[in-house]
Design a protein around this nucleic acid. Sequence first.
DNA 1: CACCAGGCAAGTA
DNA 2: TACTTGCATGGT
Length: 216
Amino acid sequence: MRNKLIGIYKTLYSHFGPQNWWPGDTPFEVCVGAILTQNTAWQNVEKAIVNLKKEKLLDPHRINKLPVKNLARHIKPSGYFNIKAKRLKSFISFLCERYDGKVSNMFSNGSGNIRNHLLGVNGIGPETADSILLYAGNVPIFVVDAYTKRIFHRLNLTPEDITYHEMQEIFMENLPSDAVLFNEYHALIVMLGKNYCKKKPLCKECPIKNCDFRIL
DNA sequence: CACCAGGCAAGTA
DNA sequence: TACTTGCATGGT
């Protein structure tokens, strides 16, 4: 498994190149994007973030004071806007009360297990928590998503019903604990997944030349 | 037209 | 504990 993981990474990287994730200007924007992109195309999230920027609302304390209904109106293009407005406010309320609204404080205060604190916030599950840790805080933790499970299942490397934690362990026990590597690997998986490994049809022809695996 | 997207929480039995 | 369902816009 170890050699496969490394081989797949090298193949993806040499084919697609560095992905330069996360798309976002600040760690706070990364956190907002992580919540808004839940089960949603990134393209739609961008529209919502543009709206927030336009209204000068991409600010923890401003959003903290904003009524949910009002916030929902601005993030409409990202879908699930009512529930995401509530989730965003839950996270931001947590951020303001515990860390004075500063993401940097969240990562510097060394206050125990940040991941568990994040998982305690309504609307933050394992993938969102890990995305925040890795992409906003450069914490070396591997982000698993639906593409990861689908691709590795199609490669006959993992069972279809593997859990988030099991999938994450496979990566973290077989790769060096390196935030830069985890960052690129997850981004490359999304790149491959959204372009070549959709649900239906199962997959386009694998675009990667001279690779030792095929996704079909 | 149908299907899908960088999930999660709440409800049901 | 183990399934199921609601959430919702916008692109293909």
